[in-house]
Design a protein around this nucleic acid. Structure first.
Lengths: 135, 135
DNA sequence: TATTGTTATACTCTATAACTATA
DNA sequence: TATAGTTATAGAGTATAACAATA
């Protein structure tokens, strides 16, 4: 009965793709949320912790926890924002940028490799159908 | 860049489908793993805790935790297996069967409803592509 | 008053390891 | 020895609530 549900079918495919992520980041302590956070900060330098949390769908305190993890590893640094003493802007460090770029290449390549069971035309069709479903 | 990754696209679609699950089970404390466990036990009466855990991909102790949750709510009962004093067989109670059947209808209907943004032909194609991907 | 970051605390789910009783 | 269940314990990740500093 579970096989008739699109939700479960999606879940299984997602688990399979997660294995690719895991393989691409083996040995590192990077999880999908951490990786996503690094990519988001890289693409939006100066983003605040709260905004990052909102983008990831987690609470402020969780964003703090996640940010601290990246700061402790010198991947990210907090910089004061002018004209607002409350909030910090998040930026990748030089090291963080290097690590993130390397991970991006690895994760993308592995994602491509795993999804290569589908010819390009089917892969594109899958993207289209998933986007339609996600709304 | 995340948009180019099938893994992330799958994740987003899966989150959207999860909302359907959440709506279908609103007010109950049923999670996907709990629902899955009930469906599996219903389809495999007498299954052992360890086998259930293996099917769900969790450790023995986790299967114990999950089973106890269902037993506490009178959804499932443990029955001794003849000729083996170690293991228990898991069975839905009458009440558990009723609850499970009702949830199955609700979850299936909601899954159908959410995926109805896709015409049947596209929905079937999505199933096919996802299965191919999941291997 | 509202917002940002922070801290304290608790809860859920998961894992590992040790224990028991059976096999 | 090996297996099923159980228990104790610990960890990650999340949430809520309260607080300080700032707006």
């Amino acid at each position: 009965m579970l096989d008739e549900m699109l939700g479960y079918c999606l879940r299984r495919a997602q688990v399979a793709m997660f294995l690719s992520f895991y393989e691409a980041t083996r040995g590192q302590t990077i999880t999908p949320p951490r990786f996503t956070a690094l990519v988001i900060i890289g693409a939006n330098p100066g983003i605040s912790q709260s905004t990052l949390g909102a983008a990831l769908g987690i609470a402020r305190s969780g964003a703090m926890y996640l940010t601290q993890w990246m700061v402790d590893r010198k991947l990210v640094e907090r910089r004061h924002i002018p004209n607002d003493g409350r909030s910090w802007g998040l930026h990748l460090t030089g090291y963080g940028r290097k690590v993130t770029e390397k991970m991006k290449r690895g994760v993308l390549a592995q994602d491509r490799k795993r999804s290569s069971v589908l010819p390009d035309q089917e892969r594109n069709e899958l993207f289209r159908l998933l986007s339609k479903l996600a709304g």
